[in-house]
Design a protein around this nucleic acid. Structure first.
Lengths: 191, 191, 191, 191
DNA sequence: GATGAATGAGCGTTCATTCAT
DNA sequence: CATGAATGAACGCTCATTCAT
């Protein structure tokens, strides 16, 4: 039986190396070495590098959403829900810098573009909390009546940028600063 | 003497190929071919690929700022100046998708991180209009009193995200939509 | 004790895969899978892939000769015996295309060359009906007085070539056409 | 400018290694080494290994036919022409054992099968002397009225087999023996 | 100064074989 | 005995860089 801890080691090593060096700064041989695994072993768990990259992202999403949605109350006001989500997201990024950097590498690559295209065209199920919240907010005239894509950009653009800058050490985000930043994002989308 | 038009051809070809295919989708041989230049010739103008990539970015910045700063009046109110800059920037990105995609590739790579680090730590001269505008706005209590880095994130995060989505075809930005988006960014940073 | 049916399954699977895809289109893992056997199990029956390939050929010969020699009467005239053998052989090839293709793969490889060398140099016992028939025919002055090796070439060269062309669909051999072809082979060696 | 002698060295090394060890006993790295050339250099002359293999075969054919057709007189009787062609062919094989073994490797591989299929289906121009000779002989009722493919088998089957056996040292073909063998082939196809 | 043929380290991937279970 | 997960050497191929012309 394939040992689950080998797969986990590969995932960990790949995430780390790709997060730190990008996709082509992380050769399969290096991933194998960091995982204390033979080069061929990776291919028992992942068909090829593309599949590894994609599954790594899916793993990441599965680890990310539960935490973010914890204590998320769908019956609270739109503003409060937005602040909750934005804050949780930023905390997750800051506490999981490797995950965050992997996520950025992924989004900023053909994989990520394809992934987004599928999501926007509705080909893929994704986490729709944000979409629903925005649509709800727009219908209540609490949020600006802008295309969803733009509302996403106004919300996540700053959050991602700030998380990156924190991780790179360009700014230090404590809880208060996070709260003020997410507040500012809300100002951007609120009507 | 090295002919400046050869350098220009190399820059043009490299920008095009890298914007379209990423850094490792643009081999030096392909750049040389697209520039109608020998492969070795590139190395007369650029020490190596890293240097080419970095200088390409500097060229891009030099082409970008004059257009954006056109008709920029330092004596207008902060809000008006912000809207002018944001709108110009978005227009530039949308009208120069190749430049924009190169810029994104660059920012999302070790090169870009290094570049930002140098700028923030003050090692490099950059375009300081934005910095001055934000600092001025903060001092007038027109803009939120947040760290500069966060104000940048709140302003450019959404603009970059929206420009990318427009270029990828996920949203269609006409002048009206651009104006509304930049307005929303202002809402994000204004006090 | 090793179960003989496991060995048989391995032999069957290996023959099929190698016949269809050649030696290096038939990885040990694939053979194991087709045989419904663990990859390591093959090594309990065959020391390594080379040994498997060689023993496979011996199995094949053992299955081939009994059928060909059926109804073979050593007291019939040389010509009649030759036609009988040639015809039986061609029928066997045509009715067992997998065996035939394996045989060709084997002959046309270092294994096959080695095998022939051993046979010709008398190191290995083989089926000697053909040799005896030719020697007898030569002594009766019914068959041309040529070296055995050449008589083999004149007889089996065309038969193998025609069988291959039939299997590849380049010609369609019915019983009549087989008879005429073997007749022509006889014309080649007869005095 | 690419030096023609580099290409020639690669061709020589590849022919030699493949003739001796088969296609997968001749790794590109080994070919490069035998040609005293960098591994990457091969790819300046041949797109990939498949192309190298195919072009090697075409080179070989171009070297082979002129010699064989030398002094070939289309106005001589069919028998005489057949003996001339068969003898020339065998001499060529025996004098160029590397070429011969390469040719065998090629024919006995997917490349060769494809090549023959194209030729038989008329997709490819080839050397049609044999075909014309056979068709002419059949129409004059000098050669047996058998499908072309079978006439080819009766002629070349033995010639190839004998050439191989000579090269492997199983028989020694001098001019007299070659003549007698080709005579025997003629007996096989003549009416 | 300009060239582009040549290079070889390094990539992603395969597969015969081993060995702990 | 049987297994199949693990291995790592070896493969075909790419490409940044060099250097003789």
């Amino acid at each position: 039986m394939t040992k689950p801890d080998k797969r986990a080691e590969i995932v960990r090593a790949a995430l780390e190396l790709i997060a730190e060096n990008g996709f082509h700064g992380a050769p399969m041989a290096a991933i194998a070495e960091h995982a204390n695994v033979g080069a061929g072993t990776i291919y028992r768990y992942f068909e090829n590098k593309d599949v590894l990259i994609t599954e790594l992202y899916q793993d990441l999403e599965e680890r990310m959403f539960p935490g973010i949605l914890e204590e998320y109350a769908a019956d609270k006001p739109v503003r409060e829900r937005f602040l909750h989500l934005g804050t949780s997201l930023m905390h997750f990024f800051i506490e999981n810098p490797l995950d965050f950097r992997y996520l950025e590498q992924f989004h900023n690559s053909p994989y990520g573009v394809e992934h987004r295209r599928d999501k926007i065209l509705g080909k893929k199920e994704g986490c729709n909390v944000f979409r629903e919240l925005f649509e709800h907010g727009v219908s209540l005239q609490v949020i600006k009546d802008l295309p969803l894509v733009i509302l996403f950009a106004l919300s996540f653009g700053p959050i991602l940028a700030v998380a990156r800058d924190h991780i790179l050490g360009f700014v230090n985000m404590d809880s208060a600063m996070i709260a003020r930043t997410v507040d500012a994002c809300w100002d951007g989308i609120k009507r």
